[in-house]
């Protein structure tokens, strides 16, 4: 008699990398970074950012828009201007005037005080594996708050271009309020960098109708001709760069800083650094948290952010040079 011999199990002690990644995500990332040269699961080296791409003015009903994509993270940003009339009662808007607000100096922070910029970030349905339908998550709200702060702190938008004047007296009669909406189409980590770049590109492509205060109608009138639309006046450039930091232990290589982390890396690494680089190698913002580190680590991030700034700057000059 012969008995059927079961085929030998194909090496029961090994499993494919994808299983390893699911079972022990941290060890999986550590093993990758310990190889020479250090390589991340995505094939990038620790200091490589993903290549960004940019399209502007793809939304026809917004005053300005941009699509930014870095790797598998894609965001759309639309800017729409609405008129905020300062005269109480007109168009059923009531504006609360605070003390000392009627000055017209250049550095007056009207944009912050009057709330002339409204930022919102929305996660598109099914943009990520962890997406749950419902009200904005804490994460989305925190990113929105950071974008709003970045926009106000860097003072990129000059208040001049948002004022609507009475042509005779040169008095401010109304303002343009910019509603900036960012929709995340696909999320693969580092949503802040992409969202911020899309806001900046959208603002650069924004053209608002020329508006003036009409004394007879006591209201704001816009010229309908597209040729009379005016670009916003923006001051300078600022680009954010985000990093995740993983500690491999002193004997195995110490701390590794990963530029532009993807979703898997963000899930594993607790420590984060965000740097907003400005022109002339200046820094406008640093945010660090999630782990015990040193100043040198932050300085390395600043250096990488300055490099990244140049890459974005070039992309913007190419992408926005043609479309206006």
């Amino acid at each position: 008699m012969t008995t059927a011999v079961p085929p030998p199990a194909p090496n029961p002690l090994s499993f494919p990398p994808a299983t390893f990644q699911k079972l022990a995500p941290k060890t999986f990332l550590e093993r990758h970074l310990q190889s020479t040269p250090a390589t991340r699961p995505s094939g990038r080296s620790p200091d490589t950012f993903r290549t960004p791409s940019l399209h502007t003015n793809s939304l026809s009903h917004a005053h300005g828009s941009a699509v930014v994509r870095t790797g598998d993270t894609a965001v759309v940003c639309g800017v729409r201007g609405e008129v905020l009339s300062l005269t109480a009662g007109v168009e059923s808007r009531v504006v609360v005037l605070r003390s000392g607000e009627d000055r017209m100096d250049e550095d007056g922070d009207e944009i912050r005080e009057r709330g002339l910029v409204v930022t919102n970030l929305e996660m598109g349905t099914g943009c990520t594996r962890d997406y749950h339908p419902g009200p904005p998550t804490d994460f989305a709200q925190a990113v929105t708050a950071r974008l709003q702060r970045l926009l106000l702190a860097n003072k990129l938008i000059s208040p001049q271009s948002l004022r609507i004047l009475d042509p005779n007296t040169e008095k401010i009669k109304a303002y343009w309020v910019l509603y900036i909406d960012v929709v995340v189409i696909s999320l693969d980590g580092n949503v802040l960098d992409a969202a911020w770049a899309s806001i900046l590109a959208a603002l650069r492509s924004t053209k608002l109708p020329q508006a003036y205060w009409d004394l007879d109608n006591e209201g704001v009138v816009c010229y309908p001709e597209a040729s009379k639309y005016k670009s916003l006046c923006l001051k300078g450039l600022a680009f954010t760069a985000s990093f995740a930091v993983i500690n491999l232990g002193t004997e195995k290589g110490g701390k590794v800083i990963l530029s532009d982390p993807d979703e898997f890396e963000e899930g594993v690494c607790e420590e984060r650094v965000m740097v907003c680089a400005l022109e002339e190698e200046k820094v406008g913002w640093i945010e660090k948290g999630g782990g015990v580190g040193q100043v040198a680590e932050v300085m390395e991030c600043v250096r990488r952010a300055t490099e990244r700034f140049k890459a974005w700057e070039q992309l913007f000059s190419e992408g926005l040079g043609s479309s206006g």
């Binding site: 702060r149 702190a153 650094v273 400005l278 190698e281 200046k282 820094v283 406008g284 913002w285 640093i286 945010e287 660090k288 948290g289 782990g291 015990v292 580190g293 040193q294 100043v295 680590e297 932050v298 300085m299 600043v302 250096r303």
Partner: peptide, 13 residues
């Protein structure tokens, strides 16, 4: 060690 940083303004390294 440095655990937390939150900086804004205009500054250099």
């Amino acid at each position: 060690g440095l655990v937390f940083v939150e900086s804004d303004g205009v500054f250099d390294g």
